[in-house]
Design a protein around this nucleic acid. Structure first.
Lengths: 256, 256
DNA sequence: CTTAGAACG
DNA sequence: CGTTCTAAG
């Protein structure tokens, strides 16, 4: 079961850069995309449904902003749109698909880079999300795969310029502690588990100043899996040469 | 004296398409541009001043909207920014440069295509402008050359689809009558005077549906000259193959 | 269809 | 730096 998480920075923009061809080649079982930046009307998913995918959308209320979508070759056993909290659901941040062996939760976590207000919103979200996932864990859903743009970097190895970003949104001590606590609730970072402490592996690069060419990046996109799924991990990676966005795709392969 | 009127649909956009090179080749004595769509700060006129031009700007208050500018090889004897009516001057619609033999009035007349409110504003403007020009005529300024985007078409010969546009803003009976009245106040349409009733000569084409390639256009950009200047007209034309904008330049050459 | 600004990232 | 929206044409 190949699961991909990919922040597209605009579904239509990514489609214009050949996303559908790449999906056809790569053929993930489940493709979780974030920042679709379009609602149901302006979105045309026919190029992906034409490849055999079932399409599930959770757009934001605000046009052109945020939003997640999940594409699945298999028809999921259940689909849950949103997290039940309108302040988050209005921004299109959570979409969950249940399968036989796992539940794939697609999330686009808030960015705090716009200012202190949004950073505060993000921190509230983080705590809400941890509680929300704990509830899911206790509710008998299949083991979770939490795919998404976390907008959070874990350790110094996950960011090129750790020293200069010690207080940057996405790498604050508070967020890094949150990440450790979240993992302690029973999750494993599939990329780090599979690769060990390899440096210089990122999933996002600012568009400015040729950051991607110089690999000045952050690892923000993660596929965290329930610890129970760890024995099933066959592969995990960041596809840094796939370029439809300022993020690159993250992939995990699970064998059941 | 070669005078050019050119609606640029964005000074910066036109510069990006090679406007400065074209000015260097064409070397008009006076270049009147409209819809500069930028204020003094975002505008960089150094490529034209570097060619020896004096630059005079009359931007709109609203960023990215309207605005005229005139570039002159000779230093004008006087420069008058605006028409003294704040509702028009706030939109950057009038800029006049006096020279020895003529006064070059650069104008960007309002468009009425946004809706009835703006069409009403345009009609008010037309009547105001006629009065304003009459005052200038009586005030001892040198004979006028009124260069600009009039957003008005005169006769059926000046528009490709006259029949379907009999009530379109820019070709309403009211505006066409205004044009005749304006000419009757002592002006000559230099293009029509020089070429006679040649059809299919336009200065604007919508960006939609390949209108320019099919020459589905309107003649909206005019160089009207005081009748006293008519004996000095040596040449007049519309430079339809000059493409930095949805308009093309209009040119008149006067010999003194 | 295109420009340019704003919001957001 | 780049996407999308909106206003305006």
């Amino acid at each position: 079961m190949k699961i991909i998480s990919y922040n597209l920075n605009g579904f239509r923009s990514a489609m214009g850069k050949g996303l559908a061809d790449w999906v056809a080649e790569t053929r993930p079982d489940v493709l979780c995309v974030q920042e679709i930046k379009a609602g149901r009307e302006p979105l045309d998913v026919s190029a992906l449904t034409g490849l055999g995918y079932h399409a599930y959308l959770h757009p934001a209320q605000k046009p052109g902003y945020s939003g997640v979508a999940t594409f699945s070759l298999q028809k999921p056993l259940a689909v849950v749109e949103g997290c039940g909290q309108s302040c988050y659901d209005d921004e299109g941040r959570v979409l969950r698909l249940n399968f036989e062996h796992c539940s794939v939760l697609n999330t686009y976590m808030p960015s705090g880079t716009s200012g202190p207000e949004r950073q505060a919103f993000k921190v509230e979200w983080l705590h809400f999300f941890r509680r929300y996932v704990r509830e899911l864990q206790g509710a008998g859903v299949p083991p979770l795969v939490i795919a998404g743009d976390y907008n959070c970097c874990q350790e110094e190895i996950d960011i090129r310029n750790a020293k200069t970003n010690l207080n940057s949104p996405g790498f604050t001590p508070e967020e890094r502690q949150w990440f450790r606590d979240f993992l302690a609730d029973g999750f494993t970072d599939s990329f780090r588990h599979h690769h060990g402490p390899v440096p210089d592996r990122y999933s996002w690069w600012t568009f400015r100043a040729g950051a991607r060419a110089r690999n000045v990046g952050w690892r923000l996109d993660h596929l965290l899996v329930d610890n129970a799924l760890v024995p099933h991990i066959r592969h995990a990676d960041l596809l840094h040469d796939v370029v439809h966005s300022d993020h690159c795709p993250a992939v995990v392969e699970l064998a059941f």
